[in-house]
Design a protein around this nucleic acid. Structure first.
Length: 576
DNA sequence: TACGGTCACACT
DNA sequence: TAGTGTGAC
């Protein structure tokens, strides 16, 4: 069953966030946001401070359309950019605790998603500035209440069409040129081509797309009016084509791709503008099969693709034909949070410094967790550190119990433990060039903080088996402790006796105040987690056998055996 | 001499 | 599962 998908991309988003901070200074100006100088120690600058820098600054991470028009490119450094465009205003990214602080952009991005959720049943947050919406239902409703001719007229008034001359011209230019800006990138003005299009006969699905375009336009208008952000959009029968359509006219414009226009749109579209083919895979396809466009790929037979070693031939062809139909995911928030920093010029050499940074990261991440937890009653269960040296890039993960804990300590301790797991016996010259920390694997929490603590905490005054009222359990005989604290105590006070893990539940917490009966009733995965924590903590007190030298791997250098399939966002998971 | 900091996901 | 690698913004 065909869907109506809108793909929304916020225009020069980081710049727009900065304009929102200081409109009188920045609105309408050629503007770029640059990185802080990662190698220098300088005072933090919070989001609300004046962060305009007249010299210095690292690479650009966002460029306003005004600046793009004057030749400023994203891969420039701030100094290069000012040279190319003397009137350019460069704003440095906010910093906190000695690293970039992207919360200004993240928080605004979440507000955008909240607004968009009013307009679509299914909302997929794809990045800080991109959202895909399934607006099929909303479009249908609109058609039920409004004459279709009127809907079509409204849509035509605010939309481009993918098969207009100007759209097709935009489809032919390169990936990089599309970013630089082109003729199609100006505020919408009506053109005869689109009017002509309107005179064509619409199919019933065309009307649905037109209705979707009206919905998307309303959504964009709401974002602009309430938050001040302009955005561009594509409307099509699937996510991938909606994204391609979105790129045809920017900023602050939207483009409809009718099914009949898909082939002509893709015919001369550079191959690397197909999502997922912008990197190695696209390059390999291009060079091995001697093609440069999506249309060219569409003409290659499946067997030739397979013979050339592209196992994902079916999806590649579906992408090239515009029929790849990955549904819009119902996910409006992140699946993981992370924090990282490069130390290129001054690599981290010892555990103490690394510990400090990890603690910083943990605090930042924990702030996000608390916020997220209050809104969504969920918490992560995995902690991962990521370490890059000259020679290697590795990650190390372990389980963590956070729950409703009010302290970042569980994350800090995990991070420090993982660091040592990586470092092994080596204590000097760690040479860490990039250090990162992340949390993932969110689980839903019981809505009520008290209830979980009550469940897991034995209260000697109330041993009865009948379920206690919360009023009863809310009067603890002594201060309740978190699971982490209990486990920690357990581990550190326990003798080195060997325990058969997993054999008899009730013997596991002899000196803790977790009620064994309660523990026995816990879901198996929670049990396992607690037991894992415990054994790990016990193990921690034993001398660790450094094995980092065995774990080191050569940094991958442009292996041609990359197996990545076309953009995982768009490609259906292959059956296994 | 240096794409910064985060994301999601496929594969094994 | 934990870990590696790619791709994208």
């Amino acid at each position: 069953m065909s869907r109506v998908v809108g793909f929304i991309d916020l225009d020069a988003y980081y710049c727009a966030c900065e304009v929102k901070q200081k409109p009188s200074l920045l609105a309408g100006k050629p503007l770029a946001v640059c990185m802080y100088e990662t190698w220098k120690k300088s005072p933090d600058r919070s989001a609300d401070m004046d962060r305009i820098v007249k010299s210095g600054g690292a690479g650009l991470i966002a460029v306003s359309y005004e600046a793009r028009a004057m030749g400023v490119k994203r891969q420039m450094s701030a100094n290069e950019a000012r040279k190319a465009c003397p009137e350019l205003i460069t704003v440095m990214v906010p910093t906190k605790n000695g690293k970039a602080d992207l919360s200004l952009y993240k928080e605004n991005g979440e507000k955008v998603v909240e607004i968009l959720q009013e307009f679509a049943g299914i909302v997929e947050k794809r990045s800080v500035d991109e959202v895909a919406l399934d607006v099929t239902d909303a479009a249908q409703k609109l058609l039920e209440t409004t004459p279709k001719e009127l809907v079509a007229r409204q849509a035509v008034n605010v939309s481009h069409f993918a098969d207009s001359e100007i759209s097709l011209k935009a489809s032919k230019i390169s990936h990089e040129a599309a970013r630089r800006g082109h003729e199609g990138q100006h505020e919408y003005t009506k053109n005869d081509d689109d009017e002509k299009n309107h005179l064509l006969k619409y199919s019933s699905f065309d009307y649905l797309l037109l209705a979707g375009a009206v919905v998307i336009n309303n959504a964009r208008k709401a974002v602009r009016e309430r938050l001040g952000f302009s955005c561009s959009a594509g409307i099509a029968a699937n996510k991938m084509i909606a994204k391609v359509g979105c790129g045809l006219h920017k900023p602050n414009q939207q483009t409809i791709v009718f099914p009949r226009s898909v082939a002509v749109l893709l015919k001369d579209l550079p191959l690397n503008r197909l999502p997922g083919l912008g990197g190695d895979l696209g390059n390999r396809i291009s060079s091995q099969l001697n093609i440069t466009t999506a249309g060219g790929l569409a003409n290659i037979s499946r067997s030739i693709l397979l013979n050339a070693g592209f196992q994902d031939a079916d999806n590649l062809l579906a992408a090239a034909n515009g029929t790849l139909d990955e549904p819009v995911k119902n996910r409006a928030n992140y699946k993981s949070f992370g924090s990282s920093k490069t130390f290129y010029k001054h690599p981290i050499t010892n555990l103490t410094i690394a510990d400090q940074w990890l603690s910083n990261f943990a605090q930042e991440i924990f702030d996000r967790i608390k916020n997220d937890r209050n809104q969504r009653n969920r918490a992560p269960t995995n902690v991962t550190i990521s370490i890059t040296t000259d020679k290697s890039h590795v990650t190390r993960t372990e389980k963590v119990h956070i729950g409703w804990s009010d302290s970042p300590q569980p994350i800090v301790r995990s991070a420090h433990r993982l660091l040592r797991r990586w470092a092994g016996t080596r204590t000097a010259h760690l040479d860490i060039v990039v250090l990162g920390l992340g949390v993932s694997n969110f689980i839903d929490l019981p809505a009520n903080k008290a209830s979980v603590m009550d469940l897991l905490t034995r209260n000697p005054l109330h041993q009865s088996k009948k379920p206690s009222s919360s009023a009863e359990i809310m009067q603890p005989s002594k201060k309740k402790r978190t699971i982490a604290e209990l486990l920690y105590q357990q581990a550190t006070t326990s003798t080195k006796k060997t325990t058969t893990v997993g054999k008899k539940d009730s013997s596991f917490f002899p000196s803790s105040n977790i009620d064994p009966e309660v523990f026995a009733q816990l879901p198996p995965e929670i049990k396992a987690e607690l037991l894992d924590d415990r054994t790990r903590l016990l193990r921690q007190s034993a001398p660790s056998l450094g094995n980092s030298h065995l774990e080191q791997r050569q940094v991958k250098k442009k292996k041609k055996t990359a197996t990545t399939t076309i953009d995982s966002f768009f490609a259906p998971r292959r059956p296994r």
